[in-house]
Structures are given as structure tokens and as C-alpha cells.
Design a protein around this nucleic acid. Sequence first.
DNA 1: CTGTTAGCGCATTCAA
DNA 2: TTGAATGCGCTAACAG
Lengths: 348, 348
Amino acid sequence: MIAPADDTLPTNGDRPKSITLKDVARLAGLSPITVSRALHNPRLVKPDTIARVKEAAAAMGYIPNMLAGSLTTKRSQLIAAIVPQLSNSMFAETVQGLNDELSAHGYQLLLSVSNYSRQKEEDLLTAILSRQPDGIVLTGIHHHPGVRKKLLATGVPVVEAWDLTPSPIDIAIGFSQERVGEKVAQYLLSKGYKRFASICARDERANRRRLALEAELERHGVVPVATHLATPPTVMNLGREGLRAILAEGHAPDVVVCSSDVLAQGALVEAQAQGIAVPETLGIMGFGDFDFAAYTHPPISSVHVDKRAIGVQAARALIAKIEGEAPAGNVVDVGFNLVERGTTRQIG
Amino acid sequence: MIAPADDTLPTNGDRPKSITLKDVARLAGLSPITVSRALHNPRLVKPDTIARVKEAAAAMGYIPNMLAGSLTTKRSQLIAAIVPQLSNSMFAETVQGLNDELSAHGYQLLLSVSNYSRQKEEDLLTAILSRQPDGIVLTGIHHHPGVRKKLLATGVPVVEAWDLTPSPIDIAIGFSQERVGEKVAQYLLSKGYKRFASICARDERANRRRLALEAELERHGVVPVATHLATPPTVMNLGREGLRAILAEGHAPDVVVCSSDVLAQGALVEAQAQGIAVPETLGIMGFGDFDFAAYTHPPISSVHVDKRAIGVQAARALIAKIEGEAPAGNVVDVGFNLVERGTTRQIG
DNA sequence: CTGTTAGCGCATTCAA
DNA sequence: TTGAATGCGCTAACAG
């Protein structure tokens, strides 16, 4: 006889009954709370007893149920992070750094990907909060209005990463996108470039860099000739297409600023395919200082950011806050460095 | 007066009291269970009541506590994954695919990084199991003995990704490392290469590909001239160093097989720095078909694997199993393709 | 040092 | 269609 399909999903009732603290306690001839203490607070328990408990726990293959534990302690040892994208992006390294540092301190990482959508970010946040994380890492400082509200209502420690703001939800760790734009503008102007084009991902931070660059150009009386927007995921071919489109529209930039080294490599490939000399006829500027940037021909001038450090510092800041340490400032600037390489002119 | 520092961590008691089902029920003038049903099982509740509940929940900013929910339902909507590495690796794409598919089905991802250590993998697994995940994704098929034991004891659905085996713990989704090694050997032999060197990450799967390659060579009476092992993280520079070391030891390979395109690009850079003609004097073979591989000079011959699909399929297989669908086979071969490009000779 | 009691927030089971 | 009682597995608080 087949059971009618209800609303209810199968409960995996075929899984082995799980072994609980009570079971271990019984085997060890102790009370459950003593077992709990032996496992998590050994100094409160006689060494002798600890040994007995450990033996019993090992014998039964006991695995604590953290859901139950967290329900009473109000601490989940969970940190949630939302990044816009993982593959082909700068964020994988940040996530790795975050995870490494969390892991070293006994925390685990709940990871979500927003796909550059604020709405998705907010939806994810709701789901995340229901798991009672001890801390949250968001990417960027611009969010759906509900995000800030919910976060403040729950009071979870929050790091906004990859950007700076004077008024973070809680803590901000990153660098100023605007200053990157300005510095890049100043650098390229100093090299004599005059006709600026951009290939920019449809990404909030990338766009702010671009706008700051354009503002700085304007201050020097220079008007950008063309902008091409590329929809993430940021694969190299978008850089090729971007440059091709700009040229096809009849623009003749003498430098193209890309929001990622990945796009810059694409632009470089396209320039070479069209027989355009880089950096003589066309300069190319990247961003992110990816591993490969130093090894293309010519190597890509870029902006270096310590992507991993952002993750590590985010973890540290959250853990410090969770564990009640004195806050060490709620805005951390990790800075950036302009890296001059072969895709921009070496002349002064 | 300052409280003495105990064992106990601060309990974040300063956080706002959280709003529970009971609070919402009180406001709506209903019982908690009705509120629960209105939220999760609306067909059991009068539309009118649902509206009242939703209004009350929204008004109070209610966020369900999933820890409590999962404690009774025995379902966590959580899938855990352990990958060897995230940055500079093939796994970021798999994780992205996994996450996208999980997210679309209401699951969340708990991510851990083993750093290529079996011991770490096993430690992570213990921590993971304590969160009662509905499913687990491991990388590879070779684990610490405790891993299989624990997994079988708990009975969680498990996918072993990026490899194949006739005897998976539960489900395997990947491709045969051995067949990759053989195919690469056959291909390079067919191109007339005779003196084989390897630059191989200290990674179990990479090594199995290498060993299979060498076995195949041996079957054709060819003995490899040199092997260089590189400790992850697999950054490009390790490829440069690898080739430099091989040449410095006096070997004169006519082809070097790399366990990743990242290493291959490094080897390519080093070869060019030393004025060695690629592919005429030295062939270079990569693995992974990374985005950049098609755009180096010359472009890197590689082995294409659908990294993202592995993640997507892992998610699907787990969800199907969790939700009680009929299993569609517990070993899925996603295959691979050899991609011939400019770093290997075009002659037959 | 160890145990008892109680409750975390929710959903299952049974009853109305 | 709604509600009451109960327990998931664990630990905080308070004994002893």
C-alpha cells in the first residue's frame, strides 16, 4: 500500500536513530549535564569522570546536536556571508580568508551568493537570520532598505566588506572605491592619456570607481569618450566584446579603464587581434591585480587590493565583537596600490 | 562592579529580545500552532486567518527560529560542502553551481575548506554533522577512514564530487582522473612527444592523473624524465618555478604536463623567459580549461571539465534523495574533453 | 564536583 | 479549521 502524497516531505525516518547526550550519560552512569560539561567545560569535571565520558561517547559514536545546543545558549558558532559572485571574481579569495580565520576560531561559514541583486541579498538575509548566526558579512555598503532595518532589529554583529562609509550598519572593512577612481585618473593623466574609455561591470562598486574617475577627469577638463557596461559574470570575453563595441562605434580612445583585470585581459586580446599597439596606441588599465595580470604580454597595469585580508579582518572583527572584546574602530581601511605595468605607457 | 571573567563567553545579552511565534500569536489572537501553520502550511488554514497572521508577523518583524524548527522536524535545509581550496582553484565554480542550485530549492550552503588535508576534512566533518545537515558534498573519493564510518552511521545523503569510483559512500559525481591521464598521454604521444616532464600539485586527484599518464606512457615504452611537485595554493609562479627547477636539474623534456592551467601558464611564461620555443621545442599541457587558457600566447592546450555542472548535479542529486525521489544512479560521469591549442604541436 | 529542574522556540500528534 | 499537550536535545540556573 502506498501512502498518499501529503504536503509533508518524507522525513528520512529510515535514518538511524541518533545518539543523544542521554544515551551517553546512561552508558557512563552519569547525568546528561555532567556529560555535557565533560565535553564542553572540562574544568568543571573531575578528570576521572571526563575519561569515562569520553570513552562512552567514543564507544557510541556520539555527535552532539548543535541545533539543540544553540537553541539554549543563543550562540550558533555560525557566521553568514553574502557575496555577489564566487566564480571569476575577486570574492573567492575574500571568502577563503574569511573561512580560514573563522575555522581557526571554531566558527563555521554559511555562504550565499546574491548574484549582484539587492533584492536577492535581502531575501537571503531573511533566510540567514532564521539560522541565528553570530555574525554576518555583507559585500558593499548599499543594500535594500529592509537589510539595514532587519540587521539593526536583531542586533547581530555585521561587517560590510569591500567598501567604506562613515556610517556602516556596524563595521565596514574595505577601501574607498572613489579614491581608486581618482588615483587611476590622476595616474593616467600623468602619463599623457587624453581620450578615456571604460569597460565596466554592472556592479555597484565598479560603477562608483568609474564615476569617481570621470569626476576627476572632468576636474582636469577631460571628457570620457565612451563607456561600455558588461553584465556579470565577468568573463574575459566581455572585455573583448567591450573593446570591440567601443571601437565599432567609432570611438578612438587612447586608454581604456576596465573594472577588472579579467576584462582588461579581454581588451588586451582584442586590441592585439586588431593590431592595435598596447600601450603605445592604446593603454589598458585593470583592477584587482589578479594572479595572471603580471604575466600577460604586456603585463596588465592594475590596482592591487588585498582581497584575502578583507576576509581575514572581517572574521577577526566579528569574532572580537561576538566574544565581547573592545571594538578596535568600526571602519577599517585596507587601502590599495596602483601597480604600473606594461599596458600603460612608461613615459612621464 | 565588574563580573569576574569566567569560562563563559558573554552571552550578548544586550541583543534585543527576539520575537517568537508566541508573540505573533498573541498579537493575532491565535494559538502559536495556527500561526506556524499559516506560515508554513497555509492550506490547512482559513485564508482570512492567514492574512491576520501575516499582518501580525510583518508588524512585529517576526523571523522564525530555524534552529528550533529543525530540532523538531529533523530537517535543516542545510547542505554542507568541503572543498580542498577556494581561491585559485577549480572549485569556486563548482561551489557557485552547487549554491545556485541549492538556493533555487530553498537550501543553504555551509562551506568548509580542507586545505587538501584529510585530517582536516575529517575534523570539519564532525563539526558539520553536529549541525544536522540534510546532505553533504565532499571533494574526491579518498578520505580519512573515520569519514566513511561517520557518514554511514548517520545516514546523511552524500555526494563525492570531482571523481568516480565503483563504490561511493553514497553518490559520486565527477569524471575519471585515470582516463584523463591516459588520454593526455595518448594525445601527446600521437603528436610525437617523447620526453615527458610533469609539474603537478600535491593534490590527490592531480597525482592520480599523473600516475595514469605515466602508466600509459610506460605501455608505449616511454619513461618520463622528470616530475616536479608543487604545494598548493596553486599560483602561477609555482609553474614558473617548476619548469625552472626541471631545467636546472639538467632535464630536457620536449613536453611538460601540468596539473592545472595556472601552472601551465607559469611554465609558459618561464619557457618564454628562457627563450624556449613553445610548442616547437617544448610542448605544454594544462588542465581545467580555465577562462584565460584560450587567450595566452600561444593559447594553452588543456582538458575541459564542466566544473559548474558538477556542483549543479551534486545539488540535484542530494535534493532528489532528500526529498525521496527515486535515485537516478549513484555514479554520474560528467566526462571531460581534451582541448587542443597552441602550446602543443599541431603536426600529427 | 555532580545532579535536578526548567525552558530555549517550534512542530508533531492528537483532540475538538 | 483550530487548539492543547508534548517533546526535539541540550544547557543555564540553582541546588547539594
